[in-house]
Simulated assay, not measured.
Amino acid sequence: MRAEKLCEVSRRGGSNTDADLTFTLTDTGRVRATEFLSRSAYAGPAPVTVQNYCAQIDAQSVAHMHVLREDIGREFEGIVVSPQVLDRFGAAMNSSRAIFIHGPAGSGKTFLAECLAGLLKGDIWVPYAILVDGEVVQVYDPAVHHQAVNEVANASLLDKRDAPDPRWVRCKRPAVLTGGELTLDMLELQFDPGTRYYQAPPHLKANNGIFIIDDLGRQRCSPTELMNRWIVPLDRRMDHLALHTGHKFMVPFDVIVVFSCNVAPDQLGDGAFLRRLGYKIEISAQTEQEYERIFRQACERYGVPYSHDAFQYLLRERHGKEGKPLLACYPRDLVSQVRDLARYEGRPAELNRQALDWAWANYFTER
């Protein structure tokens, strides 16, 4: 830099050693710095090439992760869900294909989808950024990527060396959850004209992990538009992205995509899309035995003593006569209101017919 007259020595320390030399930019150096900052203001670990990124994603693919029956049992311990549904979840997680969870609102689809994230195994390497055609795309996101325990990693980085490559950070497999806020534009690179670099879209940040799209159909784009965006990535496991310069490139789509929706899949997409959904799992209403277990759990959670007579009254006089299905969300919502009323009145909570009628009227807006 001194030879190119980009910097100069401005002050020399008392010891006259190289360690005490202080450099400042020359006018030429400032012009060069301004030129580089106008191209990109990214500051951080050096980005890796998109080719190295693709190779590393392939080396730690979710396809290499195996979920066993005991993993399912451990993750869903204490959760009331039928064994048949758990078996389907276990097989689906081993397929690395898309999962479509459907059923009525309040059946517990979102909760179960989030539990699937707990089945992710192993640590992965995530780059801080990648370099594409001279442009920087920031990938690492502390809100998504949680660093693994700080220890010497024996996982396989492509660049073998004694110490881990500082351009990569060792993380747990990511889990990204999006809902009604999702738009088609969010699935593309986000260019910041101020900093002149890109933020990766959520499914790129979710690579080697799980990407949950909750409440499919409530997005600002239609389900058909959203599904059309996923047809090629779900089939070929690759996605096409474009820079603002027009340069297009491919990145791996190594993600277990989980769709959660209140309607059946055949009401949302055509055959071409439905074929790309590896597993279509229905979460229906609970049986009476399952519903009672959930109700007992809700009573324990909110400190309301359980009453078998009151519960039978709820089944017979409310659910039975009014035709309300036994959905997993009702016990929590009804029992919490019983608790709220007792707190307001300054008395111990009691599960009885009057309290349940009061909570039911509030919940289902009865007059």
Results as ranks from 00 to 15, higher is better:
P201D: 02
T195W: 13
V257C: 10
L204V: 15
A242F: 09
L226Q: 04
V251S: 04
M227F: 13
L204Q: 04
I281L: 07
I281A: 03
I283W: 02
D254E: 13
I283A: 03
D192E: 05
A175K: 14
H244A: 11
L234N: 07
R218T: 09
D254W: 01
P233H: 03
R218D: 08
I256K: 01
L177S: 11
M250K: 14
V257P: 08
G278E: 03
G271S: 13
D185V: 12
R236Q: 14
I281P: 08
L277S: 05
C261T: 08
V255M: 05
L182A: 01
R296V: 07
L216I: 03
C261Y: 00
A200E: 06
R276P: 04
Y279V: 00
K280S: 06
T183M: 08
I281Y: 04
H247L: 04
E288H: 07
P252K: 06
T287S: 14
P202A: 05
L274A: 11
A298C: 02
L216M: 06
L274W: 01
I210C: 11
L182H: 02
D215G: 08
A264L: 04
M250T: 15
R293V: 04
D215A: 02
V176F: 03
R196Y: 06
L184P: 06
R218M: 10
P233T: 10
M186A: 13
F259L: 08
K248V: 11
P202K: 09
K280C: 13
G209K: 00
H247N: 02
A285Y: 15
R196L: 06
R229W: 13
P201L: 00
I283N: 09
D254H: 01
L216P: 07
L243M: 10
K205T: 06
I210H: 05
I294E: 12
Q190D: 14
P252N: 09
A242N: 10
Q286R: 12
Y291G: 00
C221H: 11
A272P: 02
D270C: 10
K248D: 14
D214G: 10
T195N: 11
V232T: 12
S260P: 07
Q219Y: 00
E292N: 05
L226T: 04
Q286F: 15
V263D: 13
Q297I: 12
L216H: 01
A264Q: 08
G217S: 05
P252E: 14
R293C: 11
R293D: 14
M238G: 02
P202Y: 12
T245H: 10
C299G: 09
N228M: 09
E225D: 14
Y197N: 03
E288Q: 12
R236F: 12
D266R: 13
P223R: 03
Y291S: 01
E292T: 13
V263E: 15
I213H: 00
